[in-house]
Design a protein around this nucleic acid. Structure first.
Lengths: 217, 217
DNA sequence: TAATTTTTTTAGATTAGTCTAAATTTTTTA
DNA sequence: TAAAAAATTTAGACTAATCTAAAAAAATTA
């Protein structure tokens, strides 16, 4: 049984490890967890003793198999609760993360399996992120960014790579929701903004900053 | 913002205060919270400084108005989550308490108000206990025990005064559920067990021990 | 590659919540 | 009502998680 704090470190290490082979640095962890590097060093020692991370002083950390399994179980709980909040309680996709940060630590396997069933075994959370299974396995999808799609191509919006309420609210105002069809009309030479046709219905200009954070397939 | 521990103390003081004017003793709290009296003394000092309890050394404690309000808000959350677990996730009434002990500490007012709406503003939890409102007010119902009902009277089962899984499972096996009609046929001179007619359909012998913990109106 | 800067770790404290053992107060009993 | 017993509090210590300041290691730069 691990503490909330330990679970949060594992989760943070998992996220910071995505898309890199190198270990996660102490400072990166301190930034992400809003603590000081000294505190992180202490915690890393403890997590290493428990066999959850591979850690050599000054060398950064990676998760062990068991550490990754636990991180993914926390992420599973987080994402299932997000689905519950959005679909059953009508929370906006910009609101669910903060509440799920607390719910993800509730310790009952039966609860989470029953919640999964109640929600109809969803495969994705409200942001389009995949939900790990009960064994702590998660499919890895490779999506492209809207900013990388060539003119004339039609794609479907499948996720976001930025989860801040501000960004998500911006998408709400623009009417960009998961599953909408996007035809890339033109990419501006001037500011790289993208003109897209949404669901064959209306045209919208999307800034490069936004396009970089929209995942499509 | 109060800690889980502080919230648990407030809740425990509330429950131990029911049906008595006197303050709750340090030892009673130590028993209920599975800690030592010395630890309780320490915590009482802190809660008193925060204005949540009335405390004089060696004299026991009572909740202040604010302390009681907070206790009732925790109880509100606990009971609403119990309803969710029983009605939406199909947990038995003997299973919901333990999980709700964790869920009751999730800190989001919006969450609990939306949960309340999702559940259809229930007035009672799965054990028949009333759910406090958002202001921290709870109606007090005065129910009688089945063991106090005179022969020939017909009553309705409205609650239980014992919440252990063992007791609740015993009621399940006997087919005694909230809302069932009970006609007291006869009370045994020998062991005070009660012969009841349930829903005008079948007769059951209920031990005095069980009858004492069945609340009826 | 030597000096400087950055990153990381260690040393030593702090806080909340707990503990045991000892001291103190209250209650019970003879 | 004095002695004994029970209840409660204080004293001092421990753990997890954090902090600041200082030391040490690694990376960068001149």
């Amino acid at each position: 049984m691990y503490s909330f704090t330990e679970e949060n470190y594992l989760k943070t290490i998992f996220y910071l490890s995505i898309g890199t082979q190198e270990g996660v640095s102490t400072n990166a962890l301190a930034d992400s967890t809003n603590t000081r590097a000294a505190s992180v060093s202490d915690m890393l020692k403890r997590l290493a003793e428990k066999g959850l991370i591979n850690y050599q002083k000054y060398r950064g950390v990676t998760l062990t198999e068991e550490g990754e399994r636990l991180a993914l179980l926390v992420i599973r709980k987080h994402r299932l609760w997000e689905v519950f909040l959005a679909e059953k309680l009508q929370f906006g996709w910009d609101e669910v993360h903060v509440i799920a940060e607390e719910l993800e630590h509730i310790r009952s396997e039966r609860l989470i399996e029953k919640l999964d069933a109640f929600l109809g075994y969803p495969k994705f959370d409200p942001h389009g992120d995949p939900i790990p299974n009960a064994a702590g396995e998660m499919p890895r999808f490779i999506y492209r960014k809207l900013s990388e799609i060539v003119e004339g191509t039609t794609v479907v919006m499948t996720g976001v790579s930025e989860h801040s309420p501000a960004f998500l609210q911006h998408l709400d105002k623009a009417g960009l929701t998961l599953g909408c069809q996007l035809k890339v009309n033109e990419i501006s030479d001037f500011d790289k903004s993208v003109s897209v046709l949404i669901d064959n219905a209306r045209t919208l200009f999307v800034s490069h900053e936004v396009a970089k954070n929209l995942l499509v397939k």
